[in-house]
């Protein structure tokens, strides 16, 4: 139950992805007033990973930071930078081991929000501007990113239940999703049998892991999106992003809205045109509604 948004600047970075996503999400905040989140892709630092954790507040936060530091040392990750922002703990490490096992181990010590060479997920309760006030998203200048506003229905209004979701165990893959995957448990058990761990009961995490697993097997994102439409039952419109790509998939029933606008410079996709128009106030945009059962991807050129 939500609104989604995504943008990619095709040619160069530094186009104000953070600001653009805040505007788009503010435009569709009516679809989800409970929480707001962003998946942001910054400069890539090879062999360095950026991790974000939810650590809570006060003593709880202090002990979470200690647990994270201890586990990082145990995993052989060299701590380069660390910082507490709001209820997040953000660290940069040098790590070259098995990311999946590393991620699962970290998850046992504090709630991991995202891990990536480029990706950082910022999400919390409140509206787009509230989250920006806390985490300074507006200043973020990357090539692409995703955003999500959430109306909590089945799970609680908690920072960790907000979106976007990271593909647990796979660097740099994030997802925002509007809809409901009805064969969730079936799909999840299939993936669990292959050793994947899930850190929430949210169907968005399932889609993220499903796609990331395909990508890890060398399948192209386009192809992974195509099979996702065949494999997932239910109603969905989702956006996925990786270090270099952004893509969408839409169910065959066309039950969830999605609209896009593309120029030579950028592609922007959102639940409603009102979000796209926030980027171009006063202009009549030549938008397109993706037909049911379709998918597409875009790559950044640098």
């Amino acid at each position: 139950m939500c609104g989604i948004a995504g943008i990619m600047f095709k040619n160069a970075s530094g186009r104000g992805t953070g600001k653009a996503l805040i505007d788009m999400l503010d435009g569709c905040q009516h679809r989800g007033p409970d929480s707001t989140g962003f998946a942001l892709y910054g400069a890539v630092s090879e062999e360095q990973l950026r991790l974000r954790f939810f650590i809570g507040e006060g003593d709880q936060a202090n002990s979470a930071v200690e647990r994270v530091k201890t586990e990082l040392a145990k995993q052989g990750a060299e701590l380069l930078e660390d910082e507490v922002i709001g209820n997040n703990y953000r660290v940069t490490v040098r790590f070259t081991g098995d990311l999946q096992q590393f991620a699962y181990a970290m998850e046992h010590n504090a709630k991991v929000i995202s891990i990536g060479t480029s990706l950082e997920i910022v999400k919390d309760v409140g509206g787009a501007h509230d989250v920006d006030d806390r985490y300074h998203v507006a200043g973020f200048e990357g090539t692409h990113g995703l955003g999500h506003v959430r109306l909590a229905t089945e799970s609680d209004v908690k920072p960790e239940a907000s979106h976007p979701f990271w593909a647990t165990g796979f660097e740099d893959v994030a997802i925002v999703h509007n809809g409901q995957i009805t064969n969730y448990w079936k799909m999840r058990r299939r993936l669990e049998q292959r050793g994947f761990q899930f850190t929430t009961d949210n169907d968005s995490e399932l889609i993220a892991v499903y796609l990331a697993d395909k990508l890890a097997q060398g399948v192209a994102l386009r192809e992974a999106l195509k099979t996702s439409i065949e494999d997932m039952d239910g109603t969905f419109s989702f956006l996925v992003s990786t270090r270099d790509e952004i893509g969408y998939a839409k169910d065959r029933l066309a039950a969830k809205p999605m609209i896009m606008y593309e120029t030579d410079e950028l592609v922007a996709i959102a639940s409603e045109e009102v979000s796209l128009n926030r980027l171009f106030p006063g202009q009549a945009l030549n938008t397109k509604e993706p037909p049911p059962g379709t998918y597409d991807t875009w790559s950044r050129s640098i």
């Binding site: 045109e273 009102v274 796209l276 128009n277 006063g282 202009q283 009549a284």
Partner: peptide, 28 residues
């Protein structure tokens, strides 16, 4: 209506003969 910018509910509930010209996109 100028600068509609795809906002929702433009002109709902009208019950009179009137011409409404929306210069741009309208929402839901």
């Amino acid at each position: 209506v100028v600068n509609p910018d795809a906002r929702h509910h433009i002109g709902v509930g009208l019950i009179h003969p009137i011409n409404v010209h929306v210069r741009g996109s309208a929402g839901y």
